[in-house]
Amino acid sequence: MNKILSIFFGLIFLASGNGFSQDLDELMNAELKPTVDFATATFKSTRIINGHSIEQMKENQLDFRISHRFGTLNSGLYGLFGLDESHIHFSLEYGIKDWLMLGAGRASQNKTYDGFAKVRLLRQSSGTKFMPVHLSYFTSIEIMTLKFPERPEGTSNYFSSRLAYVNQLLIARKFNENLSVQLTPTFIHRNLVKTELDQNDIYALGLGGRYKLSKRLSLNAEYYYTYNPNAKSLEPRPYNALSLGVDIETGGHVFQIMVTNSQGMREGSFIPQTTGSWADGDIHLGFNISRVFAFNKK
């Protein structure tokens, strides 16, 4: 009898001594609200390499970007492997709302200004709301401001001839902490092209991805396939843009260093007008630098 009694006492002691902390944990677990877990940091930057990623500036955050593409590696020692020549693109890009980013930039190539909007439509999420992909819409207008060539008497140039329009759907999925992939169907309309054999309307599909090698370093690749490129008989011949790069993140900066066969840094340039060939060594070294400033008061 004494034995049973002590077991009984022991059990009660165990139940009251041990039970509570678990009980406390369970109560708190129940009180924590279930959340929608959005996939964040699908890419480190608003560009995968040349093209836009689904990332955008949050509300009241300003991104100042400077990008360079040097000449071709195959220019040899004479051209210091391309470093003698450099094209620049710089831009200011601002998050009006978390879902809306506006930006304006200028490229030295063809003295081109560009203005763009990126609108977030869907966010990849798990938890209480499931959404398999991110979806954003990107649109831009590019204004080429090179002086028009002399025209024959009686004909004139129009401002509209300087314009090109870019439309893209950005569809991305962060598969896991390291791997993110993006598909980018693209439609570009150019009001004026050089010859009759050039296309005014360009259809292309971008495929881009990143793989994180460490928390602050990722390997990126980007390829834009053009369905109806300019005629191959033209000089210079058009090629699809292929770029490989790394992202290095250091607090408020992201450095992107890449090799690419395209010298252009805007969609209207690197998608229809890439004339470098990887096989021939027309490879450009380049970098993008992003610096983010926060303007929200709190």
Partner: peptide, 26 residues
Amino acid sequence: VTILNAETGEIGFQALMTTFHFKRAL
């Protein structure tokens, strides 16, 4: 979320990391 046991003085806290917010989005 925090719970305090008024009998034993045991106290617990739980917080989801994603509920922490900062001035800078980055």
